[in-house]
Amino acid sequence: MERERGLAGLDERISGCRACPRLVGWREEVARTKRAAFEDWTYWGRPVPGFGPPDASLLVVGLAPAAHGGNRTGRMFTGDRSGDVLFAALHDVGLASQPTSVSADDGLTLHGVRVTSPVHCAPPANKPTPEERNTCRPWLVSELTLLRPTLRSVVVLGAFGWQAALPAFTEAGWTVPRPRPGFAHGTRVALESAEGQPLDLFGCFHVSQRNTFTGRLTPAMLRDVLSEAAVAAGLPTKS
């Protein structure tokens, strides 16, 4: 219960962050002008916190919210095609209650999994700057620290998330090997901990349209990584 209150408080603080002027201006401009297909929506237009249970044993780390996805709906990976791919795979593996994620009140629940990102505001052209990534890092460190008692594995989607997450793991108390492991799809790295409970880190191509439309990342490839990470986290999966 204490951890749940801690994550809820963290999510609330994240939602009120205005630390990066470029991102604040962009996310709010998108929320005002909208996309024609969503003209009847009231956009969230704020930083998007993580989503999932406070006792998650598996964490999925993305890049940043989409301008007309999470920035519109207020929930990570919700309302865009990248989210369609991710949640369909999580459902196929047995880690999500339904295969779609269209709005924050659509009834979706995750089973032992939390979804977050190293940058919580939608960036122009989906490209945060290194400075914006570093400014946002303390939020990820705090989230990892709160999840630490139950967290056993992490899937990082894409090279940007990988580079952003490794320093956060170090700050949250895990030991990242030296030299730092490079990103590759299917990579698996064990991060040691002073408490004796290691964390299994998995690399996976991002669920971006560029990757999924070209076949660089297929649904089967994504399911394989999620299944392996779920097993490492001690979660039951569909056979």
Rank of each mutant, 00 (worst) to 15 (best):
L58I: 01
V60D: 07
V61M: 15
G62V: 12
G62K: 13
G62W: 12
G62C: 12
L63F: 09
A64V: 07
P65K: 02
A67T: 12
G69Y: 09
G69D: 06
G70R: 04
R72Y: 14
R72D: 09
T73G: 03
G74T: 09
F77L: 11
T78K: 00
G79Y: 03
R81F: 13
S82N: 13
V85P: 04
V85Q: 05
V85S: 03
A89P: 14
D92G: 15
V93Q: 00
L95V: 00
L95R: 00
A96Y: 10
S97L: 01
Q98L: 02
P99T: 01
S101M: 09
V102K: 04
S103C: 05
S103W: 01
A104L: 12
D105V: 13
D105C: 08
D106Y: 03
D106L: 03
D106F: 03
L110A: 06
R114G: 01
V115M: 08
T116R: 07
S117R: 10
P118K: 04
P118S: 06
V119F: 02
V119H: 01
V119W: 01
A122E: 07
P123W: 02
A125Y: 14
N126M: 13
N126V: 07
T129M: 00
P130V: 05
E131K: 05
E132V: 03
R133H: 02
N134P: 02
N134F: 06
T135H: 11
T135Q: 15
C136D: 07
C136R: 09
R137T: 00
P138T: 07
P138I: 08
L140W: 02
V141G: 01
S142L: 10
S142K: 14
L144S: 05
T145P: 06
L151F: 01
R152H: 14
S153I: 05
S153W: 05
V156P: 12
V156S: 11
G158Q: 05
G158N: 02
F160M: 13
G161N: 04
W162A: 04
A164H: 03
L166P: 12
L166K: 08
P167S: 09
A168G: 10
A168C: 04
T170P: 09
E171K: 13
E171Y: 12
A172L: 09
G173M: 11
G173R: 11
G173Q: 11
T175F: 09
T175E: 14
P179T: 07
P181A: 02
G182K: 08
G186F: 12
G186H: 13
G186I: 13
T187E: 14
V189Y: 07
A190P: 08
L191T: 09
L191E: 10
L191Q: 09
L191G: 08
E192Q: 15
A194D: 15
E195H: 10
E195S: 14
E195L: 11
G196N: 12
G196H: 13
Q197T: 15
